[in-house]
Design a protein around this nucleic acid. Structure first.
Length: 228
DNA sequence: AGCACA
């Protein structure tokens, strides 16, 4: 039973296809960013591709780690089935090949008559140009130290932007089952407490949203509230 | 089960 060869990209199936595309992308990004730099997340809703996704890491070890850890993880009430992707992702190819021109069938969008027939001598793709992988996600290490690591049904959130509100956090955390309460702290900007019904559910949310970037320079730091 | 990327 030789499986598919290791690849920077993992292929995920058995996803809940009722979840909206953008929401699924965000959730996958949040879940998998713990395992390495994510270059792209691909989700399609076409009949043939529903319930499937690709998460592109910048290197194979990250993909391997993600695969091992997240195999069968329950996301939106379904255990994910994860394999390596069969082929290289565009985001990976364009890392080593500046002049990579995606696919030929991609002239589906109107050609508009702009250099329909150029085949060699492409536009030079200046260094300042936006390459295919410019939508790279990733987080700089946040300027706070994580707190208590001993599981608790209440999460302790740090490094929030000052303007964060309770409802904003609720929007983020409510997609992980069991959310009971979100509490901001008066006079203490940047932190919050998020309560779940039990430790397991809190842990799911923690792992999913750890390092989630609320804004460009604010990645959440999540730990467990101290007991007692 | 099903392997895409504009």
């Amino acid at each position: 039973m030789a499986d598919i060869l290791p690849n920077e990209t993992i292929y995920i199936k058995n996803l809940n296809s009722k979840v909206k595309k953008q929401e699924m992308k965000r959730a996958l990004h949040a879940l998998f960013s713990a395992y390495g730099r994510i270059l792209d997340v691909v989700v399609c809703k076409t009949p043939k591709l529903r319930g499937q996704a690709w998460v592109v890491f910048n290197e194979i070890p990250a993909a391997t780690s993600a695969l091992r850890h997240m195999k069968e993880f329950q996301l939106f009430d379904r255990p994910m089935v994860i394999q390596y992707a069969k082929s290289k992702s565009d985001a990976i190819i364009s890392l080593t090949d500046d002049s990579y021109a995606p696919k030929e069938k991609r002239r589906k969008t109107e050609d508009k008559g702009v250099d329909k027939k150029r085949k060699d001598q492409e536009q030079p793709q200046a260094n300042g140009a936006t390459p295919a992988h410019s939508h790279v996600y990733g987080a700089a290490p946040p300027p706070v130290k994580p707190g208590n690591q001993e599981p608790n049904s209440i999460l302790f959130i740090q490094n929030l932007p000052d303007e964060t509100t309770g409802p904003m956090l609720e929007m983020l955390f409510t997609r992980y089952p069991g959310l009971k309460d979100v509490r901001m702290v008066d006079g203490r900007p940047g932190i919050a407490f998020v309560e779940y019904s039990d430790e397991g559910q809190a842990t799911v949310a923690l792992e999913a949203l750890q390092s989630f970037k609320i804004t460009a320079n604010h990645a959440m730091v999540i730990s467990y509230a101290k007991k007692g």
